[in-house]
Write a protein that binds this DNA or RNA. Structure first.
Lengths: 206, 206
DNA sequence: ACGATATGAATGAATG
DNA sequence: CATTCATTCATATCGT
């Protein structure tokens, strides 16, 4: 991410990469920690910025991780942490720079942190500028999130609108009716409690 | 092995420079990463060693960076990373030296500050013109530091167990399990218990 | 010119 | 959610 300056992107493609993008490099995944592949990152960011996913529910996490699994090894917790971190850091940086609530930043910011890819996906060197409107997925083809599943929000979405500018993703369905997309707005009658990692807890251990 | 600070100072008044290319040394090469000026380092170390600041909060970071800005370009994240790194490396270094040999560390020895480093760090002839060292209060008058002590060390946490008793089972809404943190209503069927992870981690972990 | 080291930056994983 | 720790990448700088 942060395509601005130096980036240390070097995730090793591990096995199976259906995407067939980068070459295969055998590598050291020996590390304990998950090293996301570029495709995985791409998708995660797409979900984050384009679909507005911020704190996916257990179900979503499973789905997402399942989808991402085709691009490399990944577990539910990785997805979970990814969203947590991404969100936290986005907020944090804002905190450092915008701390004082009052004060209008005339020039507004100026240089602070990395511009990152707010708004849309701007980071990948590839992806065509086109930007389709209908399908959120760029290359996957699997849409992880659009099922009619209850979205997670149901509860406090409060100010989630503050930064997420999800630009149009086709059906944002603000109007009412069910909004199939995950996101804010979904009020669902069910709690759909989750056992969440409960099921996959076994894999959750380091 | 040696001096930690071999920082080259090149404080530039402020931003600008766009040339980026470090064609000529001795210039602001601010192309990419932040290169702290000696004054900035001096102050940072002062805060670190003399004031005990290790992990400044967002607010502190704001103030610190504001203060340091008079010595050169700097942003909040730089301060943030600086402290993070400094602390981490100090710790890391110490870990190697103090760890294996004798583990007889009295706990009292919490302060592992490294006075040697500070006080007169500038070993480079390059130092900024003028500048006498001493109090950081050159022009700021801001008091960023907070106390002078910090007990650190002796925190060897390893993998402790922290299983929770409640474990997951938040079950679907109604049941009324514990974890009432969020006043769920007894009859409230719509679970909105999103506290969710508040304690969930237990299952996520060892 | 390199190689080594110091250190800024980024981020996965946890903890509270 | 906020904060912190550990690792790792990237680059600036110095030594020889």
């Amino acid at each position: 991410m942060e395509p601005q300056q130096q980036q240390q992107n070097q995730q090793q493609p591990n096995e199976d990469n259906s995407s067939g993008a980068k070459g295969s490099f055998l590598c050291r995944q020996s590390s304990t920690r998950w090293t996301p592949t570029t495709d995985q990152i791409r998708i995660l960011k797409d979900l984050y910025y384009n679909s507005g996913v911020r704190s996916p529910s257990a179900e979503q996490i499973q789905r997402i991780s399942a989808r991402l699994r085709q691009y490399g090894k990944i577990e539910g917790k990785n997805v979970f942490y990814w969203f947590q971190n991404h969100k936290a850091r986005e907020r944090q940086k804002k905190r450092f720079t915008t701390d004082v609530p009052m004060q209008q930043r005339t020039v507004s910011n100026a240089s602070n942190w990395k511009p990152e890819d707010y708004s849309f996906h701007n980071k990948h060197p590839n992806v065509t500028p086109g930007f389709s409107s209908a399908s959120p997925s760029s290359a996957g083809g699997l849409t992880v999130g659009q099922m009619g599943n209850y979205g997670y929000g149901s509860v406090n979405m409060e100010k989630s609108f503050r930064d997420c500018s999800i630009s149009a993703s086709a059906n944002s369905g603000v109007g009412g009716s069910m909004n199939p997309n995950y996101g804010w707005v979904g009020i669902d009658p069910y709690c759909s409690s989750y056992s969440f990692f409960g099921k996959q807890k076994s894999i959750m251990k380091p």
